[in-house]
Design a protein around this nucleic acid. Structure first.
Lengths: 229, 229
DNA sequence: TGGTGTGAATGCCTTCACAGCG
DNA sequence: CGCTGTGAAGGCATTCACACCA
């Protein structure tokens, strides 16, 4: 199996079958998201192309890093010019899988859940909340930010009907594991967990955890380090 | 300079002057936060000690990783027994800097800002929002989740009076850079940024960025990878 | 000339394996 | 005997440096 599966004869961008790649490190993928976000800002400013060094500078990494990362997925640049913003945005979205829409389920319509339902940034990137769930019966039936709140018992049927593959957990820590189990049982393949607890899942289900208190801890540590030297 | 600055004669835990350490990688510190969180859960379950292998298993990393990480800061375990939860919690909080309280300022009292102000998880870890700010005059003077909303113009004086060292940005992307600049001008040393944009800061100020859309992207990619193989 | 794509070198982080101690 | 603490080995990620091309 060749390292770069499809290199076109004329040197133009490789069509890239995204699914055909062996192993890409987590760090690369997370930078890819940063590249995409920055590219969208740059494109909105009316810019047509951008070089790896400028992109790196804006994001605080080296130009070599940018090129190496992108080289994992194909050849997107033009020598002497840089990368065409529109093309690279398109390519990156294709790699990340956000060129198509994803239906998302949210569980836990508390303060955080409500904020997430109302957040505009998701739809821009191709994510759409199609249903919300809560264990609290008094919330079931409500309409929050235009989304209907259902009973957790309805998760399996609604998930199937709407082809929901991703779930977001915004419940207290004590309920997170059970909610995760029910998501898995409902066929959900990826879970974004905002509860401050590690949940255990079958290996076939992906998870990403976000704990705002932990992020503050990281910040505090970094501030202390600085002021200690 | 010795690798482990203060090793006590009797072999008990080293008192560790946290500030005296050369260089610790970002990955280690973020795992340290996970250890702390898990230890708090374990302690709440009434457990007295825990081994590196069990801690690793709960968190999805190896026992060697746990021990190596902790070894960066001193000697906390007892051979043949494991780590005493209470002691290790105390030590970890001391390392991360959360054994003392931190005053935090929030800018942007929208949906997300309100959710953050109401989140109980912060206080448990030693963070306390002491003031909120918003550019929208109609919000100034309101009381949100028990916190007073001020004009951004008051940031410098309030930050000084309350010894605020950390700031949280929960404003739209278009306003984030300006808010960051004003925070820096007010003497804030660390910024947690929820706006979906990279902000540039002087090297003396730390930053941590959280972009929920990016987290979903990471999840989507990981799900695709899995289903492609 | 300017900037990409990429082997080679470097440096860092993780894993291994085991000595040492309670 | 069990589990920590830790050098040494291995693997992975980043950086360097340059060939190559528009």
């Amino acid at each position: 199996m060749p390292k770069h599966p499809r290199k076109t004869r004329e040197g133009r961008v490789a069509p890239l079958a995204v699914a055909s790649h062996s192993r890409v490190s987590k760090a690369v993928v997370s930078r890819l998201s940063l590249y995409l976000r920055e590219l969208q800002h740059v494109a909105r400013e009316g810019r047509d192309t951008i070089s790896s060094s400028e992109l790196g500078q804006r994001l605080g990494c080296t130009d070599a890093q940018v090129r190496k990362d992108l080289a994992n997925f194909g050849q997107f640049g033009q020598r002497g010019v840089g990368y065409r913003c529109r093309d690279l945005i398109e390519a990156t979205r294709r790699i990340l899988g956000t060129h198509e829409d994803w239906s998302v389920a949210l569980v836990g319509v508390g303060n955080l859940g409500r904020a997430l339902l109302g957040y505009r940034g998701f739809t821009r990137q191709g994510f759409r909340f199609v249903a919300a769930f809560d264990a609290d019966r008094s919330k079931v039936g409500l309409q929050v930010e235009g989304i209907r709140v259902h009973s957790l018992d309805d998760l399996p049927t609604i998930a199937r009907d709407h082809k929901i593959r991703l779930g977001v957990i915004a419940v207290p820590a004590s309920a997170a594991q059970e909610v995760a189990d029910r998501m898995v049982a409902a066929g959900i393949e990826g879970i974004l967990n905002f509860a401050p607890v590690t949940i255990s899942l079958p290996a076939a289900v992906s998870q990403v955890g976000v704990d705002v208190a932990i992020e503050l801890e990281q910040l505090a540590f970094s501030v202390l380090r600085r002021s200690a030297s």
